[in-house]
Nucleic acid binder design. Structure first.
Length: 267
DNA sequence: ATGGTAGAATGTCTA
């Protein structure tokens, strides 16, 4: 079985690329982030024609997550249990954003996660990010406490580079989000809850990235970050046979700023 | 190529 995670940065802008990528990559399950579309307008027919069932969670032009599967898609859960809400100011009601969706696909509980960016150290969004990650850790820990042998994958854009090997320049990111000790500790807490980064052994660093900013010619200059992950429960991690970051997909006109990350495991 | 990001509710926020 082949499982992928990909921050698409708009499924409308990227649908032809997504369909071409699905055809040549031969993946069974895909966790998508930043679909930037509401559920009504999600291009289900095009994906069904390509052989995939769809579960989506999106409200508007921001955020949005989805799961595509050709090995079954059941027990869909919309939203991360216990996730904090967000409001941009005190006059606006706080809402649950479209940042998590889970389902059972081919016997694996797969999650597509879009962790809040954090924006800037000290910004309310930064605290929201840390709260969101704490909810993810709590949910993961509780799920594995109840079902220690469950094959489960936490896939998505975590908006954290866990170590200095995961950024192109320590100096460049000094004072920025994605690399601060509280963010790295929040990521480590998810790992400590029982979830292994199953891609890293197959894509060693330093200098191995999943995201390159659109600006400043970052991609050709190899100035990126490793912020997209597939974290596997013990029962699933034991079955992993390979993984890769599809850097080729970042090339050319009309690419997302994130590359897909693919994991292979024994059925 | 003498510049230099992209996407969405086309205006300005988000990343």
């Amino acid at each position: 079985m082949r499982l992928a995670t990909w921050n698409l940065n708009s499924i409308r802008a990227r649908l032809p690329r997504l369909l071409a990528w699905l055809e040549r990559t031969d993946v069974d399950v895909v966790a998508l982030q930043e679909t930037k579309i509401d559920d009504e307008r999600f291009p289900r027919a095009e994906l069904a024609a390509a052989g995939y069932e769809v579960a989506s969670f999106g409200f508007s032009q921001w955020n949005g997550v989805a799961l595509l599967s050709r090995v079954g898609l059941t027990d869909v859960t919309v939203g991360l249990p216990g996730a904090p809400t967000w409001t941009k100011d005190t006059d606006t009601p706080a809402v649950v954003e479209a940042r998590a969706i889970g389902a059972t696909c081919g016997g694996v509980q797969v999650w597509s996660l879009y962790v809040p960016n954090g924006r800037a150290i000290g910004d309310p969004h930064y605290d929201y990010k840390l709260q969101w990650l704490a909810a993810l850790r709590d949910f993961g820990a509780k799920t594995l406490a109840d079902a220690p042998d469950l094959p489960m994958a936490l896939c998505g854009d975590f908006n954290i580079a866990p170590t200095d090997d995961d950024i192109w320049s320590v100096e460049y990111f000094h004072g920025s989000t994605h690399v601060t000790p509280p963010e790295r500790e929040a990521f480590a807490a998810v790992v400590d809850a029982g979830f292994t980064d199953v891609v890293r052994p197959h894509a060693p660093g330093p200098g191995t990235f999943t995201y390159w900013d659109y600006t400043q010619l970052s991609f050709p200059k190899r100035r990126g970050m490793r912020i997209d992950f597939a974290l596997a429960s013990p029962a699933l991690a034991d079955r992993v046979t390979g993984a890769f970051i599809d850097r080729e997909e970042r090339k050319g006109k009309g690419a997302s700023d994130h590359a897909p990350v693919v994991v292979e495991f024994e059925a």
